[in-house]
Design a protein around this nucleic acid. Sequence first.
DNA 1: TGTAAAATTGTAATGATTACAAAATTGAAG
DNA 2: CTTCAATTTTGTAATCATTACAATTTTACA
Lengths: 140, 140
Amino acid sequence: MQNLQKIKDKLQQYKIKPSLIRIKVLEYLNSTREHPNAEKIYKKLLKEIPTLSRTSVYNTLKLLTQKGAIKEIMIEEGEIRYDGINERHAHFKCVKCNNLYDLKLKCKSCLEETDLNKVKVMDEHIYIVGICKKCLKKGE
Amino acid sequence: MQNLQKIKDKLQQYKIKPSLIRIKVLEYLNSTREHPNAEKIYKKLLKEIPTLSRTSVYNTLKLLTQKGAIKEIMIEEGEIRYDGINERHAHFKCVKCNNLYDLKLKCKSCLEETDLNKVKVMDEHIYIVGICKKCLKKGE
DNA sequence: TGTAAAATTGTAATGATTACAAAATTGAAG
DNA sequence: CTTCAATTTTGTAATCATTACAATTTTACA
Ligand SMILES: [Mn+2]
Ligand SMILES: [Mn+2]
Ligand SMILES: [Zn+2]
Ligand SMILES: [Zn+2]
């Protein structure tokens, strides 16, 4: 399909050679908004690539992150989640169901320009922790 | 000194019984803006409390966090830093010197109210990753 | 084909955090 | 001052996601 070409193009755009695992990992991360961790990605791709190793998933995630094609999200200790959506947005982590939702940002920057114009900004992370709509309903 | 009383009051305010270790940990976190991790806090307090155990520091930090007296900051994998300053603010993490600086926020919320008025917000984290002024100068 | 570079794999190590049970301390009651 | 249960603190062992490393496989190109 032409979706494959899009993934390959994106990899090339970030100067990453398009191997099978890299394509599959990026394809998965671009197709979902669930922000999976390495283990979830491994389990998912194992169905398509039976020889896949956990190490390869970790290696690939590290590479994609370093090249800027995906983003690491660190919210809870001992678990890195990954986000393949590159548009600037914030996150909402529900402490009940553990889901991680995307949130829109209404302003370009919440920070004082005077603080920022002296430093080199490489990355920005904004997230809220709380209880989501669904879980609030469940608990009356 | 009367600083001690302030710390005790703050602990009581968050419904935490003021034991020696709790007082010392909170006192340290309220006196610094360096956002230390558990190990740094342990090393620092060991000078004053020679019988101190790492476990006690971890226990105390967990308790203070759960009660809301301090905040965990998770930016780099495998290292939780702690912040005793309760006023809402953002952070800047320098990837060169590894320092974590405080930043002022210019707006009350960067998020769409429509997204937030259906959920329960418990915590908010905003941070920038980049290279600080000092390190930029060093590298010409 | 031959071969060096790159990618992938499996196993072992790492290290911050946590679990757990024992020891010490506290504080109220007698 | 004692007693004793609750709380706090401690030391050791376990956890577990991630990383290091070396071996194997695959790729790309002459
Ligand atoms: Mn996202
Ligand atoms: Mn801070
Ligand atoms: Zn939820
Ligand atoms: Zn710096």
